[in-house]
Write a protein that binds this DNA or RNA. Structure first.
Lengths: 398, 398
DNA sequence: AAACCTATCGGGAAGGTTCTCGAAACGGGT
DNA sequence: ACCCGTTTCGAGAACCTTCCCGATAGGTTT
């Protein structure tokens, strides 16, 4: 209904009456291509290119942003340096000024932005933690122990789980590194044979502490338990109970904990002059299904074992369950000892003998060791003690 | 051994022969105080203050810094904008240039700095997760479910546990907010009555999803299970088995899950015309010790219950253990049903009847819901189904 | 009063990105 | 030569903080 005549500026534009943004002249304007969809003009007079923008679009009112150190400075008419000093508790600042700043900061509910800080200082105050699994009580408890120490020291925890997959482990380490964590707490999978991803960590000088499942090739601080003597005691206990044909449900031999427990088993057998039967040693990869298979394999043996020492409680439990299912009497006809003292071991019937390890403390000590590394890189190995707990699954004397 | 004469500049300095840093003149110099331990001078001629610095100290070779977008730009003689465009997969870039940049980036092992990115974009790609505890399988499993979804979407997880302490919960929420997480996944403690800390979250427009133990006062998205009908079924099952005097070991009534399970209990009792005996309802705060106390209280009653419906499996287990310890026959003389289907329930003897809930899925769904919130804030409640699992602890018929 | 000193504050760079917007280069058509 | 359009690139701001170092205002000493 309305015609152009009512909108002179529209007419001007529609007829090419474009004014130069600089000199406001019209006669020297010519088109000069299209710029992201908009017509572009060129003023010969002042040698200036321009497009007709939406300068009239109501500029949003300085988008919502959180209160910064600059806001405080502006309101107080001082510089951001001074505010920073006051907030950081620095010296070189007047007591009155500091109070002013502190008061306003509280009033505005100012929270320092850790991102800006991290960018500048190159430390995120985040510790990365990588565990193989979450299913049983073991690793969650370690995490709790580590978190107690770390959060007291002002660090947050970023947790990943590799799910016993080497590929996931590699990917997780990469992700952790990308996130610029200040340090790493790691327990490897049962399948990790190549340690290049950890070499990268070391090369980037990111502090790295292994716990429980440690890396045998790398010179790094670590927290382990006395696997060997734990295993030795367990097997010796079985021998004392009169079991002779003792099997070992072992872990993957690439894991140091598995090798040491195996060695304890072997040495205890030899010490008591018992013959080593290779067929009584089976390896599993620490997954639940695989443990079940191995348990079946052992009990299906033409000449089944009289007792089984398992590398950890979850696998010992699989043996126990299968035995119960088949009506095999534990401990009379089959002795079982596990490793790690999972709470379930005490609840099940018959209760499971096992080797106790200070799980929470593993977490604590790992965290403490890592905290040390942040100051002073120094390779150290902490060894925590184990303790045999004899329960019903292996007690057939006294 | 050496005298000043061999070091004319030293003599000059020692005699006050200081040259102005600007005009190089000597005669107009005078001391003007001490500046952070160093003598400070003033040149009257050019009105200039200065100190004699260690300009000759060998400037460290530009301290080790990680490879940035600028390094690539410099080596290629192009601008950082172009590099950023190539790396981001933007358009507006020559294919040859892009290849060059991509190749060099790979060669230099360039990793974008997420901190800088986060600072600029105001998103950290970190999701905060707050759970009451870590001890049982429940929350770790939820975390696994959530992590599976979130890491696929490019988010990392920062996990805190409140340890059933209100104060810790408040502190953790603050820490999470301070860390500028992009979103929050929360299950509250059994003691949380004041929700101001979550109001702060909402006010800062940080997406917040509650799961399992949700907040009754706030209008937020949440993932829950059908507690009421789960409880109802459980109690009805007990009634069908011929139990009449049924107790409820309840959770803290401020928790919605506890209230709903209580309601299920009450309604099932009423439906079957069973009298409500207030003394048969005891509340516990979800800690282990307290559960033990409550179990003892119930069994010590002058007229003890014939069956107990417990608010969760850990507390049901306490009842079961105490009963076994006292030689009470389960299920003949005492029926027990728990809630949540902890794996231990199937292992213990007698096996524990319980209400199964899709734990992993709770984590998944919560994560998905949070992911939605990041795009489009929208209040939604997802309700997952429960399923009664009848085991030995409550089966005395059929 | 000049010389010197201390206490307090401000300016600006750095940290690594992304994004906006303007500029240059280029290609083809008159 | 000129015009017009496209493709490709660069400068610089913004994000927020800390830290270095120079600057200033007073006071105190000769």
């Amino acid at each position: 209904m309305c015609t152009f005549s009512f909108f002179p500026f529209l007419r001007a534009q529609s007829r090419g009456m474009i004014k130069c943004k600089k000199c406001n002249q019209v006669e020297f304007i010519q088109k000069s291509g299209i710029m992201r969809g908009k017509q572009r003009y060129y003023c010969k007079s002042c040698d200036y290119h321009f497009t007709i923008g939406d300068e009239n679009t109501p500029q949003e009112p300085k988008r919502h942003h959180e209160v910064t150190i600059m806001d405080i400075a502006r309101q107080l008419g001082i510089s951001k340096s001074t505010v920073s000093r006051a907030l950081r508790g620095h010296t070189d600042i007047h007591e009155g000024t500091r109070q002013m700043i502190l008061d306003l900061a509280k009033e505005l509910d100012y929270e320092p932005n850790p991102l800006a800080n991290a960018l500048l200082k190159r430390r995120t105050n985040i510790i990365g933690m990588l565990v193989p699994e979450f299913r049983h009580y073991f690793f969650p408890t370690i995490i709790m122990g580590a978190q107690a120490v770390l959060s007291k020291a002002g660090y947050n925890l970023m947790i990943f789980q590799s799910d016993e997959s080497y590929e996931t482990e590699v990917a997780n380490v990469k992700a952790l590194l990308r996130s610029r964590v200040d340090g790493l707490l790691v327990s490897i999978t049962g399948k990790t044979e190549n340690f290049d991803h950890f070499r990268t960590v070391l090369q980037k000088e990111v502090p790295l502490v292994f716990f429980n499942r440690v890396c045998p090739e790398l010179e790094t601080p670590q927290v382990i338990i006395d696997d060997y003597s734990g295993a030795f005691q367990a097997v010796e206990h079985l021998i004392e109970q009169g079991y002779r044909r003792i099997a070992h449900l072992a872990g993957p031999s690439i894991l140091q904990i598995a090798r040491l427990r195996m060695q304890g088993y072997v040495d205890a057998m030899q010490k008591h002059g018992l013959p080593m039967d290779e067929s009584l040693i089976v390896y599993h990869d620490l997954t639940e299904e695989n443990a079940r298979l191995c348990a079946r394999h052992l009990l299906d043996l033409p000449q089944p074992p009289e007792a089984i020492f398992a590398v950890n409680d979850p696998s010992a439990l699989e043996v126990l369950l299968l035995a119960k299912q088949r009506g095999i009497k534990v401990p009379q006809d089959l002795g079982i000892v596990g490793f790690s003292n999972d709470p379930v071991s005490a609840l099940i019937e018959p209760s499971l003998s096992t080797v106790d390890q200070p799980v929470w403390e593993i977490g604590e000590q790992s965290a403490l060791l890592l905290l040390e590394q942040l100051d002073q890189p120094r390779v150290e190995t902490k060894v925590l003690q184990t303790r045999l707990i004899v329960r019903d699954s292996s007690r057939r004397k006294g």
